[in-house]
Structures are given as structure tokens and as C-alpha cells.
Nucleic acid binder design. Structure first.
Lengths: 253, 253
DNA sequence: GCAAAAGTGTTCGTGCTACACCCATGG
DNA sequence: CCATGGGTGTAGCACGAACACTTTTGC
């Protein structure tokens, strides 16, 4: 999280175990009740929310830092995590405003110096997440993508860019592995695509296309217990899925 | 350039005008004699080459730093510049090797601490470039993309990733504006695409496709002086080109 | 039996691919 | 006049888009 690099009570002069100029922010996306959700944190003693994130340790890689933060906030590891942009403006947000809102949490002279932040997004299986706040926050909660309040720092902007990157990725790579449970139905996958793309898709065309990619197994079993016709369950073919990730399927002309 | 953030003779303890943990590297691409070229620098007193780059000033944005470096090395401004990745590994390259190779240029205790680097690529009009070395280097020169020697730092890897990003960009956005002169012929544009994609394209299909995008004007004049049939000159329609850049033209299904 | 969701095939049009010949120019 | 590169049209095919009815299930 932008600025969280210096811990609240760190003695001046002692060298920090963290990089001081670069922080990391995570847009953690889940899918629930036909809606994309983002994991947000509420800062102690405030009604202010922000993305999970934080500083990077000097002895860990940036990717490792992203994994660590994801693990701390959700309990999950081994998840699809994608770096999408470095946010390097000098004035990414109004620092005085942040200083005012969070002054009870951090020593003002240490905080809120310029920090560049790298954005990652993660796609996770919603019910597997155990949302966990960090040292600066007292609540960690899912928010529907269309109900996000005004966030601290430049985090509304960051989410917007993350979603654009996700849509681009969707346009030439498969998505869904790790975002859906291991077994899922085609209508569920379709609703995921519809949610990310923001428009409806034709179920016949969607099925033909998806099955044609050769990255799905149809299982013997169907999902019982719904109030309607029992849909088939599917599972990703991990090998083919990964191959498709690296090679993509859209090319010039 | 990774590590160049601390100037050679900077007195210890004096605060630097640069960010110390984040540097920037530029893959500057030109197109000449049907070949993609990269601008490289040779370090003083060595036969070692690297990409242009350097530290980021505390009061400039990362994008501005990229523009500044591009300007310093080429004389050009207002150029297509694209951030493509942050390289954040702890050991991006063998630091001892670099220390040995460049020890005569920088104080070893200051140098070669961990630095994260953000990569940009730029597409420039080859003949407009005036290659200019920086303080650490004595030569600045174009290299054919297939003739690049083993470079300092992790710069061979950086170039590889830059080219992959460029190919992806090419697959859903137009390219060529700022990489070609203002007026150009369709065969020139085609050779550019072929070079980036690494395969040949059919001229009839290429023309139909390009003209169909509506981003080209055909001019009245033809290019005279070639040894053969005079080709038509074209020019990009800047408005349509930019619209195409933002909206792209490949989508899901 | 009825409401709600799942499953399935065909037609049409667009756009990509493949392919070959004539034209203009300079040497 | 010849070698070289530029310019152009067509036919086949594959893929995406549009579209409606039947089946299953729980209530």
C-alpha cells in the first residue's frame, strides 16, 4: 500500500528491512453471486478503505512480495497473480489529504513521501478466501465491483486499470483457472466471462468456442441440487490451459 | 541502467536527487534496411554494451524519466514510449561480474546494490536519431536485433521481453506511427510488420487489411527515384490511429 | 403443471487465406 | 529489354453471430 513502507513505530535512523521507494498494491478479484468482487481493507479508526498492499522486503523479489501479501490477506498461495503496471507519477494522490486522514496511525514525518507503486491483480476462488486485515487495518472485506466507495490513495484508478488489463488478457488468453472452483459448470464459466467483459454472450456460441479450445474436460457427474435441470460439471485440462496461456490464440491478421 | 542511480563521485551521506532503488531501462527500436535495430551504449574503457537507461529524479514521474532518457540518447521527444514490465528479482544478474567489469567507473561500495528496474520500449524513426552516449559510456550505436552481443546486467532478457510485448501489442493495436517517417509506402509498412512478427505476409492481404482499418491516407504523389515501379506514398490519419490505439480491434469471441 | 435454467444445430455473413499476372522503372 | 519490385482481384473456407425449442428439475 502506498506509503505503508515505514512501520508506525520504527525508530528514526535504523535501516528498514523494506524498500522505501517502491510499494505494491494488489487488486484481488473473486467471483460470487454473478458479480466480480474486490478485496478491500478498512483502516483503523476510520471509514476509509484501500486495496491490500504494502512494502517490499529488501531480500524478496517483487513477485514474491505480491505472493506474500496475497497469502497474508487471503490465506491462499499458488494463485494466478499478474503484474499489470507501475504507477510512477510524482503526485499520484493528494498527500496532504492522506496525511490528515491517517495521521493517528503513522508518524507524519516518515510517511507520505513519494512512493512509486507496482500493481498486481489476482484471481481467486471466492469461497476459499479468509479475508484478514493487516496491522494498519481492522476490517478486510469483499466489495462488489460496482459498489466500491471512494478509496484512499489512487486506488480507484488502480482498480480501473487492473480491470482494463484483465479484459485485454481475456481477449487472447483463457481465464477461469483458479478463479472458479476445480469443478464448475459451463454456465458458471460463461457468467464469469460476461461479468469481466460487461456484456452478455450467447450460450451456444460460448460453449462451442470454449469446448473447441480443448482446455476443458466434461465430467460424468452433473451438479445436483439446483432448482432446475442439472448442468454438467467441467474441469480444466491444466496442461492445455497452460499451453494456451503462453501461446495465446489471437494473432495479427 | 541498473545501478547507475548513484553517480560516480557522489560524496557519501549527501542525499541524491535520484531515487536509489528504482532505475529505468529503455529498449529503443528503430527500423532500417529491413531490420529492427536497438540502440546500445558501450561503457567507457570497456567492450561492454548495455541498454540506455538510468536513475529517476525524485521530482519527475517515471514516464517523464523515460522521455528524458530517450531525449538524451536520441535527441527525439514526443515519441511512442510504452512501459512494458517491472523487473523486480533480487538477483537480476550477477552483481560481482558487473562490479568487476565496471570497477574503474564507479565506487564499488555505492554501486550494485539491489535495484529494481522498469522497462520501456520506444519506437523511433531511425534516420532522425542522433545517438548520444551518457556520462558512463563512450559510444552509442544501433545494433541489428539479431546481432546483439552479450550485454551487461539482464539486458538481453529485457530486450527479449520487450519484443514479446511489442508483438502482443501489434496483435491488437496498430503500429508504425513514429516508427516510420511521416510519409511511407505500404511495402515499407509491410516490411516493418514482417520484421516484428518474424514472418512474411501476403502483400494483397496486407494492403486490404491495412486500408480497411481506415487509418491511412493515400497521397497523390508516389515515391520516385527507386529503381522500379514508383510506389504510392501514405500517411497515417492521426485521429483514427489514436482511436484505434485506445480501443484496439481484437476482442473476445 | 409451471417456472427457471440447461442443453443443443443451423444459417448467414464476414473476414482471412491462398494464389498469379501485369505494370512501371532504372540500368 | 530485362530484372526488380509494386500493384491488384477472386474464390474457398473457417469462424463468429444470430436465432428457438426441448429437456430437466424443484416447487
Amino acid at each position: 500500500m502506498s506509503g505503508k513502507n515505514i512501520t508506525a513505530k520504527q525508530p528514526a535512523g535504523k535501516s528498514s528491512p523494506f524498500l522505501s521507494e517502491l510499494t505494491l498494491d494488489c487488486v484481488i478479484l473473486g467471483f460470487h453471486e454473478d458479480q466480480l468482487k474486490v478485496l478491500l481493507l478498512r483502516w483503523r479508526g476510520t471509514q476509509e478503505w484501500s486495496l491490500p498492499g504494502g512494502p517490499i522486503r529488501k531480500e524478496e523479489s517483487v513477485d514474491q512480495a505480491a505472493c506474500r501479501i496475497l497469502k497474508e490477506r487471503t490465506g491462499l498461495k499458488d494463485i494466478f497473480l499478474q503484474q499489470f503496471q507501475l504507477f510512477g507519477d510524482v503526485e499520484r494522490y493528494n498527500r496532504n489529504e492522506i496525511k490528515e486522514k491517517l495521521k493517528h496511525l503513522v508518524e507524519p514525518e516518515k510517511w507520505f513521501e513519494r512512493a512509486v507503486s507496482v500493481g498486481y491483480y489476482a484471481l481467486v476462488d471466492y469461497p476459499k478466501v479468509a479475508p484478514t486485515p493487516d496491522a494498519f487495518t481492522e476490517e478486510c472485506q469483499w466489495w462488489g465491483i460496482d459498489e466500491i466507495p471512494s478509496l484512499l490513495f489512487d486506488h480507484n484508478h488502480l482498480i480501473k486499470i487492473a480491470l482494463e488489463s484483465l479484459r485485454i488478457q481475456l481477449s487472447w488468453q483463457p481465464i477461469g483457472y483458479k478463479l472458479l472452483p476445480e469443478q464448475f459448470t459451463l454456465p458458471e464459466l460463461q457468467r464469469l466471462y460476461e461479468t469481466i467483459l460487461g456484456r452478455t454472450l450467447d450460450p451456444r456460441n460460448f460453449q462451442r468456442k470454449m469446448l473447441g479450445l480443448g482446455i476443458l474436460y466434461r465430467l460424468e457427474t452433473r451438479r445436483k441440487g439446483g432448482a432446475h435441470k442439472a448442468p454438467y460439471l467441467y474441469r480444466f485440462n491444466k496442461q492445455h490451459y497452460k499451453a494456451m496461456l503462453t501461446k495465446g490464440s489471437l494473432f495479427f491478421s
